[in-house]
Design a protein around this nucleic acid. Structure first.
Length: 204
DNA sequence: TGCCAGGCCCTCTTTAGGGCCTT
C-alpha cells in the first residue's frame, strides 16, 4: 500500500474566513496499515477562540498566542505530507481549511482527498452513527487520547482507515486497496457498493 | 441591507425538506 497522510484540523468555526481559522493541525503518515510518522502543532492565526470551541477542543486564545504562526506551521505540515494522498474524516471540512490555509502562504494542494466518513457509510452501514468517536468505540479501535485534539483525531481516523481496509479484505477479498480506488468507492451509491467491489476484486 | 457552510443521503422525493458530519 502506498504512503497515505491522514490529517485533522481544529479550527475556530465551521467555514474558513477572516474570523474563522485553523488553530491546530495534525498529520499521520500511514504505510501498510501502520503509522510511521506524526506531525502536530498548534498555530497562531491571530484570531480569538470562541468560548464554545475552547470548551469543545480545550484550545484557548492564550495557548495560541505562544504557538508558531499559521504560515510557519502550514509550510511545515505541507512539507511533512509531501505528495502523499490525503484522507480525513468528513474530508470536505478539512479540505476547505487545508486549501484556504495553504492559499494564504501561496501554495496549492496537488493530491486528492479521500473521506473516511463517506467510506464508513458505505462499508459500515450498521454502525449506530458515523461520527469518528462512535466508529472508534463501535469497532473496538484503540483510544488515541483527548478527542477533538488534532493528533488524537488524526490517529483515530488512521485507525478507522485500517479497519476499513480490513473490512475490504475480509468481505470483498481486496487486499491491495489504492487511494484512487477509495476515491472512487466513496462516490458509489450505497446500493451499488457490493457490485462495485466485486468488480474491483475481479480486476485485482 | 441582510444574510452567514455545504455536500451527502434518505424519503412521507425529483416542482423538496431535513438530518448527518466536521469545528
Amino acid at each position: 500500500m502506498e504512503r497515505i497522510a491522514v490529517i485533522d484540523f481544529e479550527t475556530t468555526g465551521i467555514s474558513p474566513g477572516a474570523d474563522c481559522r485553523a488553530t491546530e493541525i495534525a498529520a499521520v503518515l500511514v504505510e501498510n496499515g501502520r503509522v510511521v510518522d506524526r506531525y502536530q502543532s498548534l498555530m497562531n492565526a491571530g484570531v480569538r477562540v470562541p468560548a464554545f470551541i475552547e470548551q469543545l477542543t480545550g484550545i484557548s486564545t492564550a495557548m495560541l498566542k505562544s504557538a508558531p504562526s499559521a504560515a510557519t506551521v502550514m509550510a511545515e505540515v505541507a512539507d511533512f505530507v509531501g505528495a502523499a494522498p490525503l484522507v480525513a474524516h468528513n474530508a470536505a471540512f478539512d479540505q476547505k481549511f487545508w486549501d484556504a490555509e495553504l492559499a494564504r502562504i501561496g501554495r496549492e494542494r496537488q493530491q486528492p482527498f479521500a473521506c473516511s466518513l463517506l467510506l464508513a457509510r458505505r462499508l459500515l452501514p450498521d454502525a449506530p452513527n458515523h461520527k469518528l468517536g462512535t466508529l472508534t468505540r463501535w469497532a473496538g479501535l484503540p483510544a488515541t487520547g483527548q478527542a477533538h485534539r488534532a493528533l488524537a483525531d488524526a490517529e483515530m481516523a488512521a485507525n478507522l482507515l485500517g479497519h476499513l481496509h480490513e473490512r475490504l479484505a475480509s468481505h470483498y477479498g481486496l487486499r491491495q486497496v489504492s487511494h484512487p480506488l477509495l476515491c472512487q468507492l466513496q462516490k458509489v451509491p450505497a446500493a451499488k457498493v457490493d457490485a462495485f467491489l466485486a468488480r474491483a476484486a475481479g480486476r485485482a
